[in-house]
């Protein structure tokens, strides 16, 4: 079926089987490999994308559900596409990336958190990222990174 939606700010129209999982559409059909799949059952958060600005799991969404939606993947976060978004930069600087597999999901969940709550407490950060599992970092550096990102964005007077 013909499906039209906005992907990382650009209109996209493609012919897809309506029951194809969104994570497969993004990775296999559209070549955007930043969205990861780990558990495939909604337990790890690696496949998190923003749909109309809200974190959703692309392994538990089907292509037909994309119609008319505004989708952001990790590839669309940096407006220029060349320099890192301040949140991505904060993850690098805080040492919040080890194997990197959870990072796109963590960064997108952070984007949503900071858009609603520009200066979250560490407890609020832990809660907002509680659907994203990381098996390397022990989470401390990730929480540090979100705090750093919040500082960077508020200094610049930007929102996530």
């Amino acid at each position: 079926m013909k499906i039209s939606f906005t992907l990382n700010g650009k209109p996209v129209s493609c012919d897809l089987p309506s029951n194809r999982r969104v994570v497969d559409v993004l990775r296999e059909d559209l070549g955007l490999m930043g969205t990861k799949e780990a558990c495939g059952t909604g337990e790890c958060g690696a496949c998190t994308i923003l749909v109309d600005g809200i974190p959703r799991l692309s392994c538990l969404m089907l292509a037909a559900q994309l119609e008319g939606r505004d989708v952001t993947t990790i590839e669309g976060l940096s407006k220029s596409g060349e320099t890192l978004h301040p949140i991505q930069q904060a993850f690098v600087e805080a040492g919040a990336v080890q194997c990197g597999f959870c990072t796109p999901g963590m960064v997108l969940a952070t984007t949503h958190l900071l858009s609603e709550n520009p200066r979250p407490t560490r407890e609020e950060i832990r809660e907002a990222l509680s659907g994203n599992i990381c098996r390397c970092t022990g989470y401390q550096k990730i929480v540090d990174a979100v705090e750093l990102a919040a500082e960077k964005l508020t200094e610049k007077g930007e929102t996530a």
Partner: peptide, 9 residues
């Protein structure tokens, strides 16, 4: 219940 993205869906 679940996690933030599960609760969004």
């Amino acid at each position: 219940l679940g996690s933030p993205p599960i609760r969004n869906m």
